[in-house]
Design a protein around this nucleic acid. Sequence first.
RNA 1: GCUGGUGUAGCUCAGCAGGUAGAGCAUCUGACUUGUAAUCAGAAGGUCGUCGGUUCGAUUCCGACCGCCAGCUCCA
Length: 646
Amino acid sequence: MSDIQITLPDGSTKSVPAGSTPIDVAKSISPRLADDALVARVNGDLYDLGRPIEADAKLEILTPRSNDPDALFVYRHSTAHLLAAAVMELYPETKLGVGPPIDNGFYYDFQRATPFTPEDLEKIEKRMWELQAKALPYARIMTEKNDGLSKYKEDWMKCELIQEKADATFSEYTLGPHFIDFCRGPHLPSTGKIKAFKLLSVAGAHWKGNEKNPALQRIYGTAWFNKKDLDAYLAKLEEAKKRDHRKLGQELDLFSIQELAGPGLIFFHPKGGRVRKILEDWMRDQYLARGYALVYTPHVMRRDLWKTSGHANFYSENMFTPMELDDAEYQLKPMNCPGHILIYRDKLRSYRDLPVRLGELGTVYRYERSGTMHGLLRVRGFTQDDAHIFCTPEQIESEVVNCLEFAIDVLKTYGFDSYEAEVSTWDGGASGKYDGSADQWQLAENALKRAVESLNIVAKVMPDEAAFYGPKIDMKLVDAIGRKWQLSTVQFDFTLPRRFGLEYIAEDGKAHQPLMVHRALYGSVERFFGILVEHYAGAFPVWLAPVQAVVMPITDRQLEYAQTVAKKLDDAGVRVHLDDRKEKVNLKIREAQLQKVPYMLVVGDREAAEGTVAVRNRKHGDQGAKPVAQFIADLQALVESKAVTE
RNA sequence: GCUGGUGUAGCUCAGCAGGUAGAGCAUCUGACUUGUAAUCAGAAGGUCGUCGGUUCGAUUCCGACCGCCAGCUCCA
């Protein structure tokens, strides 16, 4: 048998007989490596440790310490198989769907007449650990397609997959005596390598994600290389639960959703309203400072308008149904763009007028399917910080740059340090599903890419992810606990200017069609508000806090002094509340802490005599006494700098 | 919309193998004048999501609907 050359990651080579497996090589390097090995990467492809290598190759042995996302994926995929094997032992009549790894874990889809209960999950998890302890091998078997189909005749979903995806010969993996799965692999050598996992939930799903297909039961789980990582992840889930804006929204009395009014419709309470005003004022001021004009457009408009814009056609399932009025049909607006377009079109525009930037905090109504609403994040009525820019081809690059700078400013202002950008482009026109000319797409996509470059933004290009009416760039922020949220979007639109026949008179004296850019930076004010609540866990920075300070007299002897303190703060523009109840300070402090008020100002006889307040900060506790004027000045400095620490 | 779960006082929750409900907090009243995370006592508060069915009798069992939750699908 001839030898082959194996090149290792450090550049060294090893000569081994052809047909050697990665685990053979690992053993020859060190027993410990062989022991830790999970999976191999051979010339960039993932291989089972026991799969022979036939020719010269680059080899990398992946272990938990490799910190390699592919290794974790294989690990989670194998855990999904472990789940399925346990289910098949306990409930042999179950039909198997698919079981892929996902971010943080895995799932497996099953079809079974009776639903899995939480108790079933416990039973399954217990069985999984039993199979884990047996260190069962994941064995790879090669099968002829025809044999495979008859082997899986009991499992219609697997047959469908084999029909669609399998080559003439395909791989399968067994795990124990009761489980075999059509699967590309690779997998861990044995269940003994799986050290930390937990089943999390069972939820409905449809075969191939199509709701016309049969409903399946999906069991979700999470899996990690070790218990510490698992515990850290579970702690993160707990933390996310604590930050849930729906829970905090109620506890902090920020907003509510009323059953009598309908789902997906938000009521901002006084405290939430106070914060929202700050967000809105900031945004409107920025619009004016950055050369946008503020406009207001109606909430209902004739259906004819929505026919012209095309929304009555391609967007109708997202619109509230029309209402009859004076023999005409009217419809609530799902978008602000047609309104802004009507303002643009209301007079003849010269190239000298461009760019025209029309901005509005426009409340739109969209029909969302009943099961899809989620707190403030997914609603039926929401307010976009929406602007439309009409410009010449020469202007688009600088307009895009301005939008992106603005978007980054939003992130910085609200305390988000990290973000990601995605440029979504078309397919080059191959499918015909995109509107607009190749010239337009090229112009716009180049402008987006150049803008991103000039600002040193790292952006992923997403081919064939554009809207049908134009390319776009989306910004995603990363919050305090590492979650990503889609926020700002800047989108070109080649369709609406044509549909509405928009024009400007250029230097050549002829009418040209302007380019149009949609852009929303908060996205939706409601949604952004929700993201802020979760990011700050309800403890808004001082400049955003609905109540910035609570004055707490210790006894009613200091009531009068407390009132003068509160008045001074109020006069200085501080959002202050006077807690003049006949209650103990301990209680007042506790409640203010729970309400996450940044400053508690205790006033007793000493403070009254000295003209001071005893400052307690929600995070740092007792800060000692300060003259009232000093406290005001300090707080104003925090507000002025929009500080996120206090 | 689909699958599964769920819905008891303002909030968090207990209870009921079918005999019209209970706690803590909040609210109200009274007492306590209190120094950095809950003072004490009393009172009041619910057509047990809605409608219908079974039953002598339903908050409890059954059905439909509505809302909420976890997902699917979709998306700002």
